[in-house]
Every structure is written in C-alpha cells, then in structure tokens.
Amino acid sequence: MAGSGVTQMREDDDIVLSVKNLVMEFKVGRDEIVHAVSDVSFDVKKGETLGIVGESGCGKSTTARSIVQLPKPTSGSVMVDSEDGPIELSGLKGDALRKIRPKLQMIFQDPISSLNPRRIVREVVKEGLAIWPNGMSEQQIQDRVDEILESVGIDPEIAATRRAHEFSGGQCQRISIARAVALDPEILICDEPVSALDVSVQAQILNLLEEMKEKYGLTLLFISHDLSVVRNVSDRVVVMYLGKICEIGSSDTIYSLPAHPYTRVLLASAPEPASTVSESESAIGDDIPSPINPPTGCRFRTRCPSAQALCEEKEPEMQKVGDDHFVACHFPVIDR
C-alpha cells in the first residue's frame, strides 16, 4: 500500500482542494522521527464529499490537521481554490494565512472539548463573524447567527443563555457545525464527527451534515474509522494505512470492488462484513508496525496476505485499475 504517486489527481476546473505529496513528520526523542503522513495526494471537487478511512495511526487526522496548517506540514502542497485562483496554503504565514482560514473550517471528534466551557453558546457560534464581519452590521450578524442556529436545530433563545456543558453531546456537535458554517466556508473538514456520539444520535448528525452541505454549498472532507459511515456520506473514498494511501476511488467502487488487500481486510473485519469479500479475509496479524520505523517497500507488506518479495523491495506506485479507481499495490485484486 504504501503507495506514492499522483496519478489519482484529476484535471478539473472544479477542484477546490488539492493536496499533493503531503508529508508530516514529528520528531520524538533525540533522533527518532514519526512518519505520520508520507507522500499523500488527493483532490476534492466542489460539492463533493471525500471520505478518508483507516485505522488509528494511519495518519487520517494528521492529514486533516496539516491541511488547515495546524501544524504546518513538513513538505508538500495544499492548494485551496479562491476568488483569485488556487492559493498555496503551506507558503502562507501570519495574516495572509489568517485571511484564508474562513474558507476551510473543521469540526472535531470530541463534542465537549470542541466548545469553550466558559463561553455562551451563541457567542461561540458568532465568534467567526466577530472576527470577520465583512461589512456586516451588528444586526445582520445577529440575524445570521440566529439563522444558522436554527438550521442546525438549536433554539437561538436557549443558545443565548447557556454554555456548552448544558447541552448533550449531539447538541454540542450541532453547535460546532454551526460555528464552522457561520463563516460560509468552502470546505468543511469533519474529523470523526460522530465517533463520540451514541448510535441513536449519529444519524441525526450525519443527516444534518448532508443538509448543511446542500444548503450552504459545502464541500466535505469526512474522516472516520467507521467504514459504514464513510460509505454512507462519501462520493469518493480514500483508504489510508500507516501514513500512505492504499486505494482511492468512487465510494461504491471501493466498497463493491475493493482492489487493495488492505481494503479487503478492512471490509472483512467490520462487525457485519461487506458481502463483496469473504469473512476469512480478515485473518491478518494484529501487530501494526510503528510509524517510527515503517516497513520498507509497501508499508502493508508485513500484514498483507498476498505480499511477495517485490513488495519489500519496491514501493508500489498509484495505478489506475478502473474508472476513477486507483490502487497502490503490486498485486491488486481485480476481478472484473
């Protein structure tokens, strides 16, 4: 898996976010380096939902964080579409970066920690507009906050007097969505937005995200470890493992014709395995290699059922295996 390459990048005027050769490394201890994200490239079209799925440590959240430059990636490019054409984020600093920030908003996994416990919820939602009034009058700002609160299903009156801890987890996540959407962003990055919620609340939030996407013309980057959730919300899916992309393609293709051995393992391991793979395919080792010393060649080879000598020597490049379907594997499963 562990694939590099940029064949999967599309040529299109509608691309709003394009991430190319993104690398994120952290220093730990004296001279050890964590290779959290290694050479990841993908792009997102306007109005599209791109799902990123993978297990813990695969670099999906780090990817999200480095797109918003928190912290800045070690190398690679993050291009965001703007009125004056695409802007390279990784080169921006200080005020220039701040000015572009409203375009890219984010919601996080922990609904409680995402909201300042000492601030009134209405103020939290208003914060973006307080920073960037863009010529709006105070009244217009207030109206906009009311409108957004209502659209996420929070009563503005209640929000005007209460703080976050007085709301349930699901409601807090609605408030986070309202805060992010208030600035009318181009792209909304959702980092495990429903993982901390009860199953009975999860669908409410997923439905709300779809609604908001429609209403405010958002493009979503949806990150989750939950395969079923990712399939449900995404148009396109990226499967990541140990800092690399394994497979990328349209959501239904990835789930119905998984070509990468790791994707197949994931699908077979789900509590209710996908019908396209046999359950026995979930039988792989439990030991995920350390991102400090990732395996040579293909990073998945240590656990891969179809690994061969070549996988150790050479890192697989992204290759096209179907219509909008790209795989980084020397021996992809293609049965069509």
Binding site: V199, A203, S228, N232, D252, Y255, E272, P273
Partner: peptide, 18 residues
Amino acid sequence: ATIPKIDTPSHTRLVPIP
C-alpha cells in the same frame, strides 16, 4: 434502521431517531 450499513450504496437515507 439508523445505523449505516456497509453494503448499502452511498447516500442511502438514514432514518434518524429523533
């Protein structure tokens, strides 16, 4: 009904529990 299923196509409606 509220849990997304791995085998259903993308954007299948989820029936929320209000």
